[in-house]
């Protein structure tokens, strides 16, 4: 799917720095950021909050059949990382030896290229994780 430059630009803070939000009323952190706290609704007060950049693998898969833009990377790991504040984030795993990819393994955020759009030459960057 083709993605416009404004669409990539709009999410830079979230994708580059793992910035989500936290509800000041109930102290629940969210990633990606939300405008409404599902727990507090109108009583909620959400402000920006940087997520911790470390966590543990909650679940993972190795993708062999890739979508357009990712064909050259197969097979690659995708994992849901449970961050230190318990927020879960889906991300690609990179620079991680196969034998270390396990549920419970410690992982740390790294900054990488996500994909290159051949049509417009736009390169999307963002977070990935690696096993530490």
């Amino acid at each position: 799917m083709k993605r416009s430059l404004p669409l990539l630009w709009r999410r830079i803070n979230e994708r580059y720095n793992l910035v989500g939000s936290i509800c000041q009323t109930c102290n629940t952190p969210y990633f990606p950021s939300r405008k409404i706290c599902p727990k507090c609704r109108r009583k909620g007060k959400l402000i920006s909050q940087k997520m911790p950049n470390e966590g543990k693998i909650f679940t993972f898969t190795q993708v062999h059949a890739a979508p357009a833009g990712f064909e050259h990377e197969t097979p690659y790991f995708m994992a849901i990382i449970q961050l230190k504040n318990d927020v879960k984030v889906l991300a690609q795993l990179v620079d991680s030896p196969v034998e270390k990819v396990k549920i419970g393994a410690n992982a740390k955020m790294v900054f990488r290229k996500i994909y290159e759009d051949n049509h417009e030459g736009a390169i999307a960057y963002g977070y990935k994780f690696k096993i530490v």
């Binding site: 990606p32 679940t59 979508p67 995708m78 996500i114």
Partner: peptide, 27 residues
């Protein structure tokens, strides 16, 4: 079919539909 998932926070990052169910399966 990927449009059934979250375009910005799943598909954008390289997830596929089978990958999402694979994550459930592994758990």
């Amino acid at each position: 079919l990927g449009g059934a998932g979250d375009q910005e926070w799943e598909l954008f990052l390289g997830a596929t539909f089978p990958a999402l169910y694979a994550l459930l399966a592994r758990r």
